[in-house]
Design a binder for these strands. Structure first.
Length: 552
RNA sequence: GCGCCCGUAGCUCAGCUGGAUAGAGCAACGGACUUCUAAUCCGUAGGUCGGAGGUUCGAAUCCUCCCGGGCGCACCA
């Protein structure tokens, strides 16, 4: 909406001040922080002042005169060099109508014509339960996907399963050792094995159902492989369950191992070789990543003939490249940031532009208990899992908390605070706003017989209060703001949009009475506005994966 | 040593890629329930935006240097 308005305004000005076309990219139509500056604010006069050799104030007044003839503006004021507009109620009424018709997808793109993209996130090793960092990545990746979907992209969500390599081997050894220890407590546990209780559980499960089979294996290696495979599958199932309870579902589960068994690694290396970026040195095969900004070249095939992890990752991204996405997004833990330049270089060697691959880094989640930091590590097995946390505080609170901070900053998670389930968690604030509206609707039906589903003829001109106007404005520009945070990849800002709208609703609720049997017309108009607010809230909740509760 | 990220109220954090008097929540203090749910609302107090320069009509935001904290610099995965 803002975009359309801006284009309209610029084209109107252009008829009289053609110089404006030189500043089109710098012109901003802003929503001012303060109400007294109107609904929208235009900075064009500052930009034009120099070119026209006039003062910003004079140019602003000129713009004011041009735009005053339009009926979508109720009032235009010049303050300093800013041109501030107030939009007409007529304009807002159209918006409310739209919000009501589009339900919980208010403002969402009707078609997926922006393109097709892939978002890869979580991608945890199937060697243990998900921890809090994974949870943060899951929320950020999922919401980012939802935002792109809202914006008009066809989005595929993908989980890359690291089911090859040493980690899995270690998993197998750990499970096997626990398995043997059931009968022989002195059986040695691998030094750097996984210590968590879940390993024992898996071992006990195997002992119960597969004891004979495992013990009959002549080769211990075979038994370890078996344990690894079994454990991996079991843990992967748990990961899937945890994510599902979190409202996160993937379209594609991509196995790293499949790359090796299907020959895709060789295929990718061959492709790069033909492009001339592969060479041999000191018995190893290298990729010339320095060609694309990496600070040194990287090994693909080690001198012992085995592939590096990097080679596998290249094959994986070569696969994505061939799928033909417009661009891809990877959500990674921040400790991998040093890895990005080389992967980007490899991907660019395929022949895609630099921004084809994007990475969102998720900084560490630090857990605090009793005011002290709790160190988490998979190796010691001493950590609070995502599942524990969701069970204790509920998925909505966890989602909202993980989402409310910029993913690129460290997050301190105070477990005591979260467990309190108190109003200190702002998720209750926004949910309460929705619950209050629902409550009003229930009362409207019971007391006044007004069915919220049949609000056809309402006189919106009765909505004269300043707060009502503010709410309409908030709803009107919400889709613009959602789209903006989508393209800027700032999913955390959605919590603020939600909070702002909820705050206005609470203010409105406290200061005005909606149900008034003496004035049914006004009641209906207000219910109509409330319905638009409810839909806007539901739209935001849906993007975040939070439940719109009817009662609290 | 090199690279990336962070530094904003007592605490946890926003600040929309340069806009107007830097904002929220929690904590503190003072008010508002005979009402459609007080998990709410209204108000008070709290700041050298880590520091110093620079760019310009205008800087928390962009550039340079410095100071703190985190992370990363493999023929590991």
């Amino acid at each position: 909406m803002k975009q359309e308005l801006q284009e309209k305004i610029v084209s109107l000005i252009e008829k009289q001040i053609p110089e404006i076309k030189d500043f089109k990219t710098k012109i901003k139509l802003d929503i001012p922080k303060e109400e007294k500056f109107g609904d929208l604010s235009l900075n064009a006069a500052f930009l034009l002042a120099k070119a026209l050799k006039k003062k910003p104030f004079e140019v602003a007044n000129q713009i004011k005169e041009i735009l005053e003839k339009e009926d979508i503006f109720e009032n235009i004021e010049v303050v300093g060099g800013f041109v501030n507009f107030r939009l007409s109620l007529k304009f807002y009424f159209e918006i409310l109508k739209q919000a009501i018709e589009e339900k919980d997808e208010y403002g969402k793109a009707k078609t997926k014509d922006k393109g097709t993209i892939n978002v890869e996130f979580v991608s945890a090793n199937p060697t243990g339960p998900l921890h809090l960092g994974h949870g943060r990545g899951a929320v950020v990746g999922n919401v980012l996907s939802n935002l792109y979907d809202y914006y008009g992209y066809f989005v595929e969500r993908e989980f890359y399963i690291n089911d090859a390599g040493k980690q899995i081997r270690k998993l197998g050894e750990s499970i096997y050792a626990r398995f043997r220890q059931i009968e022989d407590p002195s059986y040695p546990f691998p030094e750097d094995g996984y210590h968590g209780e879940y390993i024992k559980e898996i071992a006990q499960h195997l002992y119960k159902y597969e004891r004979e089979k495992i013990l009959s294996m002549v080769d211990e290696e075979q038994a370890i492989d078996f344990c690894a495979e079994f454990g991996k599958e079991m843990l992967l199932e748990r990961i899937k369950e945890d994510l599902k309870s979190f409202g996160v579902e993937f379209d594609i589960w991509f196995s790293e191992k499949s790359l090796y068994t299907s020959g895709k690694v060789d295929e990718a290396i061959q492709f790069l070789k033909e492009k001339g970026y592969v060479y041999e040195k000191e018995g190893a095969v290298w990729l010339r990543t320095t060609e694309f900004g990496d600070d040194k070249d990287r090994v693909l095939i080690k001198s012992d003939g085995s592939y590096t992890y990097f080679a596998g990752d290249i094959a994986y991204h070569y696969d994505k490249f061939k799928r033909g996405y417009d661009f891809i997004v990877n959500v990674w833990g921040a400790d991998h940031h040093g890895y990005f330049p080389r992967l980007k270089a490899a991907v660019m060697a395929f022949g895609v532009p630099e921004d084809w691959i994007r990475v969102l880094f998720i900084q560490l989640v630090k857990l605090f208990k009793n005011g002290k930091e709790v160190k988490m590590s998979k190796r010691s097995g001493e950590f609070i899992t995502l599942k524990d946390l969701i069970e204790e505080v509920g998925k909505d609170a966890v989602i909202y908390f993980f989402l409310s901070k910029d993913s690129n900053t460290h997050l301190n998670f105070d477990i005591d605070l979260a467990l309190k389930k108190s109003n200190e968690n702002p998720v209750y604030y926004v949910q309460y706003a929705h619950a209050r509206i629902s409550s009003v609707f229930r009362e409207a039906k019971e007391r006044l017989g007004i069915d919220i589903e049949n609000l056809e003829e309402v006189n919106l001109n009765l909505l004269k209060e300043e707060i009502e106007r503010q709410i309409m404005k908030n709803i009107a520009f919400l889709p613009d703001q959602i789209k903006e945070i989508a393209i800027k990849e700032q999913p955390h800002r959605i919590t603020q949009l939600t909070y702002e709208l909820a705050a206005k609703l609470h203010n409105y609720y406290y200061n005005y009475k909606f149900l008034n049997e003496e004035d049914i017309e006004l009641t209906k108009a207000r219910l109509y506005l409330l319905k638009a607010v409810r839909n806007a809230l539901r739209t935001l909740f849906k993007l975040m994966g939070i439940t719109p509760v009817e009662k609290m």
